[in-house]
Amino acid sequence: MVKGTSVSIAACLTLFAVFFLPLPLAAQESGQLGADREIAQLAEKGESLFAQKCTPCHAIGGGDRPTGPDLAGITERRERQWIRRFILDPQGIIADDPAARQLAEKYPMAMPDLGLSEAEAEALIAFLAMPTEEEHQAGEVTAPPAAAGTQAGDPRRGEALYIGSTPFSQGGAPCLACHGIAGHGLAGGASFGPDLSAAYASYGAEGMVSMLESMPFPSMEPIYLDHPLTAEESRDLTAFLAEVSGETPRVVGPLARDAGLGALFFFAVTLAFGWHRLRGVRRPLVEKMRNRIGGEPR
């Protein structure tokens, strides 16, 4: 009896071991797979963000550009927290981090605030960390997308697009609405955004074209999201910017003077019309009455 019971217990233990012990291991493996899949999805999101926001200035494996350093292997060279901060608050980190300041000195075109969320920054970092440097260099995700930059544009058409005499085909705002430019009369002193007289020198043809095509600046995004520039328009604008590159930007000094003169002219007209206004009819009568009743003449 005792022997039969021992056999039964042993059989039960064996069965338990056969069927249940492997479960935690399997769960661990499937958990690992899930996490990998999650990271892969995050990196995929990061890849599209990279193409949209970063490629105008940065390459991966294509070498440093005048607009920004190559980001291949960045996650191995810098801590994640440092990269996250650079993505989310570029001006802040440049102000108080020596390494970031050094980069800002090397690349004078300041990195704009991209307006990304924490989650988007994580996705970008996941993408930057995902493939190895060799994979990057093999060209899986390579640098500047804009091959268009290599073709020459028409600077005259670019100029017309810049000042708005030729509207953009998709209805985007002409550059002169916000950006000053050298050599274009008094209106060349637009000041909403930075003057673009030196933009070509900072970005180069390739950077300029890809920037114009993607418009990675938060303040420009809503304006051009549904009204993007065509590849040809970007080339023409780049050709125009290359032409004015190096010229001295215009400072709009006379605007205040001219507006002041205009205001003086208006006051002069007001004075001319008001000089003898109502004097002949009402005021003498009012003053006469006031004098008669002993009131203060006005």
Binding site: G164, G185, G188, L255, G260, L261, G262
Partner: peptide
Amino acid sequence: WGVLLGRPLRLYLLEATGLALALCALA
């Protein structure tokens, strides 16, 4: 309006006139 301001001189004149009028209005 975009066509009207598509020439820098017209743009400047309109802006200067608008600013002059605004200064008068403020005064």
